[in-house]
Computed example of a mutant assay.
Amino acid sequence: MNRILFVCTGNTCRSPMAEGILRKLLAEGNLTGYEVRSAGVAAYDGTPTSDHAASVLKERGAEGPRHSTFLSQPLIEWADLVLTMTSSHKRHTIQLYPAAVDKIFTLKEYVHDDPAETAKLAELESFVTELQLKQALAQPISEAEQAKLRTLGGELPSPDIADPFGGPLHAYRKCAEEIEACLIKLTAKLKALD
C-alpha cells in the first residue's frame, strides 16, 4: 500500500491539503517509499489550488499540488489506496470505478479505530445506497425508512470532512486540523504495516 490517492470535489481545497500534510507527516516519521497524489471528482485539470488552502499548507510547513487533477481511470489504477473526503465522494468514485471498490474508503472510515462505530457506519452507508437505488428507480421512500436514516445518522459522528471552499481562512485551518488528526492515525497505521 505505497500509493495513496486523496479525492474531494474540485481538488482545490481538501484533497490538496491532505496530500501536502501527509507528505510532511511521512517525512517527519521517516516513512519512505510512499507516493501521494490527489484528484477531484468534479475537478477541471489545471485549476489553481485555493489561495487559502495553499496558505494553510505553508503555515504548516507543507506543500501540496499547485493545480487540480480530474479523477481518472489511470489514477485509480495507480493507487493502492483511495481516500475520499466524504461518503458521497466515495459512492461517486465507486460508481465510476466499481472494480476498485476494495481500495476506496472515506479518510475517516479508514483511520477509524472503534469497531462498533465502524459497523454502524457500514450499516448507514449500505442503507443510504439502498435508498439511492430506490430513488433512481422512482420508488418512494417510506416514513419508516426516513426515520431509520435519521436514527442511524444521529448515532454516528459525521464520516465527512466539511468543504471549506469559499469560506474564510479560519475555516480552512479548521479543515486542515481535522484532516491532520486523521492523517496522524493514518501514519500510525502505515508504520504498523511496515
Rank of each mutant, 00 (worst) to 15 (best):
A192Q: 05
E123N: 13
L25C: 09
I104M: 00
V36M: 03
S88P: 00
I161N: 02
M1K: 10
E130P: 09
E117R: 12
L152D: 08
A62Y: 09
L124S: 07
K120L: 15
G61E: 04
L26Y: 03
A39W: 03
T49E: 00
H92L: 15
L183D: 12
N11A: 01
M1W: 07
P159M: 09
V56P: 03
I161P: 00
N2Y: 14
S38G: 04
L121V: 04
V56C: 01
V128T: 12
R23E: 06
L131M: 15
L186F: 11
S72N: 13
Y34E: 04
G64S: 05
R173L: 02
T86H: 02
K191C: 13
L131P: 11
A138I: 13
D45Y: 07
A122N: 12
M17C: 05
L137E: 14
T69R: 15
K103C: 04
I4V: 08
R60C: 03
L5T: 04
E125N: 15
V41N: 07
D113R: 11
G10M: 10
L137K: 15
C175G: 09
L83F: 05
S87T: 14
A79G: 09
E125S: 12
G10K: 07
I104L: 09
E130F: 15
P159F: 12
S142E: 10
I94C: 05
L169P: 01
M17I: 03
D102C: 08
L81W: 09
L5Q: 05
A99T: 09
S55G: 04
D45Q: 12
A147G: 12
D160H: 03
K134M: 14
I76K: 04
P65G: 11
A43K: 00
Y97S: 06
A79P: 12
E178I: 13
T49N: 01
Q95S: 13
S142F: 07
T93Y: 00
P159I: 11
Y44G: 15
A116F: 10
A176L: 09
E143I: 13
Y110F: 15
E19A: 03
C182E: 07
L131E: 14
T84S: 06
V128N: 08
E63L: 06
K58E: 00
A79Y: 13
H67Q: 14
A79H: 09
A192C: 03
G29H: 15
H112L: 14
A53Q: 02
P140V: 11
L5I: 06
G167E: 09
V36T: 01
L57E: 01
G154H: 06
E130Y: 14
S87I: 09
L193Q: 12
A18N: 03
